[in-house]
């Protein structure tokens, strides 16, 4: 296929003319085959990898009865509030006044530190995404729970006080 038939002989050249050697037109196809199979392998692998994964999320049933609500020990709780601009505000226990600021990269250490300090059965993380938090923030923090093997956590709305405090902090820090 890749060769062409070249007619030998034919017209005679004069005595002084050197007979030029006929070069073969055969092309080495090995690299092309290599490339072909490489592409095949690549396509086969990428098509199966593209499947999206999914994260399971189980929410509790909403209840108005106070005795059905989950009780959390103050000493073992860590509240993470997700604010605007990928910022996390966190505090221990039940006093929002001691709120501190962090980001998504450092939050893992904070969770781990608290986890080490508290008995496993008391440790509880309360996640409070505010109105300006994005879906990505929520998924990231839920993922962080998985990564740090936190078995008890809840997602609730921040109280009005907490939201105001976040707003003030954001204004002071100039977060747009």
């Amino acid at each position: 296929m890749a060769e062409m038939e070249v007619k030998q002989g034919g017209h005679k050249k004069g005595p002084g003319v050197k007979k030029s050697k006929k070069q073969s037109t055969r092309v080495d196809l090995t690299p092309m085959v290599d490339l072909g199979f490489l592409l095949i392998t690549f396509f086969i692998f990428t098509t199966t990898m593209a499947q999206p994964t999914s994260m399971n999320l189980n929410m509790p049933k909403d209840t108005d009865k106070p005795d059905e609500n989950t009780k959390v020990k103050e000493s073992g709780s860590l509240t993470l509030m997700l604010g605007k601009g990928n910022v996390i505000y966190y505090y221990y226990g039940s006093d929002p006044a001691t709120m501190q600021t962090t980001g998504y990269k450092d939050v893992r250490n904070i969770i781990l530190e608290k986890k080490k300090k508290t008995p496993a059965e008391d440790f509880f993380v309360i996640i409070k995404p505010d109105k300006d938090a994005t879906y990505k923030n929520a998924v990231n923090i839920l993922d962080e729970m998985n990564i740090n093997d936190v078995s008890r956590y809840a997602m609730v709305d921040p109280t009005a006080d907490e939201y105001n405090k976040i707003q003030l902090t954001e204004q002071a820090a100039g977060v747009k």
Binding site: P52, T53, N56, L57, D143
Partner: peptide, 8 residues
């Protein structure tokens, strides 16, 4: 109460 969040 059970959902799957599609992620990468």
């Amino acid at each position: 109460f059970k959902y799957n969040l599609v992620t990468n």
